[in-house]
């Protein structure tokens, strides 16, 4: 199962000058099992903050996040993540990167390599098993990162602008591959992006966040069948709708909630 419930979540950071900056403000959201959700917002709107809290890397200042009715208190094997930056361990070969989580779990060498090869195959990089990350292109590195996260068979896969640093062509290709993988592995995916095009191509639902502090401004469901054709009229229609949505004053307004302590 991969039902995620976010309830009244708050996150704030204290700044050096003593004020408190609210990054996430009373955010509630439910993501159901096997759903593909995109979180859309401009830079600095708290998308990454939200994702890090779901991952258990940061602790919320208020509210809670439940995965299958269990509260998330720290990194958990049920949740995998693909970061925006290249996070592969450069001192490990591609295969050893994918097998890392299994190794930490104490799986036997042969068994974990067998599984890791399976996941490398899923992202189409079997031939690069022995290579080191420095020998791979950006797109290949992110594919390995996806395989590495999936190898632990998490129920939720978090993706923090994973294709943000890639060129448009590679990006489109990887989006397509990701949907295939999602179809095969049936994970709940929460995908953070600032690209409307990407969100419309991928998501079942798009959650639009307001900047500073992050709140849900709009939720937009897309029921177009996949694979979606980026050049089709319907796609353009949805894309325009979403663009209009995010450009509404209530979604762009910056209302900094900072207060003196």
């Amino acid at each position: 199962m991969g039902d995620l419930v976010i309830h009244d979540l708050n996150q704030s950071f204290s700044r050096d000058d003593g004020t408190i900056l609210a990054a996430i403000d009373n955010l509630s959201l439910t993501v159901s099992d096997k759903e593909f959700v995109c979180i859309l917002g401009s830079s600095g709107c708290g998308k990454t903050t939200l994702l890090r809290m779901i991952a258990g890397l940061d602790t919320a200042t208020g509210g809670e996040i439940l995965l299958d009715n269990e509260r998330i208190t720290g990194p958990d094997a049920k949740i995998g993540i693909v970061f925006q930056e290249y996070s592969l361990f450069p001192w490990r070969s591609v295969l050893d990167n994918v097998a890392f989580g299994l190794e930490m779990r104490g799986m036997e060498r042969d068994e974990r390599y067998r599984l890791a090869e399976q996941y490398l195959d899923l992202v189409g990089l079997t031939l690069f098993a022995k290579s080191y990350p420095s020998e791979l292109s950006g797109g290949m590195r992110q594919r390995v990162a996806v395989a590495r996260a999936l190898a632990l068979d998490p129920v939720v896969l978090l993706m923090d602008e994973p294709f943000g640093a890639l060129d448009a062509q590679t990006r489109n290709m990887l989006q397509h591959e990701l949907l295939n993988i999602w179809g095969k592995t049936k994970k709940t995916i929460i995908f953070v992006t600032h690209s409307v095009d990407e969100a419309v191509y991928l998501a079942d639902r798009i959650i639009v966040l307001t900047p500073r502090p992050g709140r849900i401004c709009e939720i937009f469901s897309i029921d177009q069948p996949r694979p979606r054709d980026r050049t089709s009229v319907e796609f353009a229609k949805v894309r325009r709708l979403v663009l209009d949505l995010i450009n509404q004053p209530k979604c762009t307004l910056q209302n900094e909630l900072s207060s003196k302590v």
Partner: peptide, 17 residues
């Protein structure tokens, strides 16, 4: 930091590990 966080997410959580 990204390596440490990636490690934590993959089940490498103890200080010694």
């Amino acid at each position: 930091r990204i390596f440490v966080e990636a490690g934590k997410m993959l089940g490498c959580t103890k200080n010694w590990d």
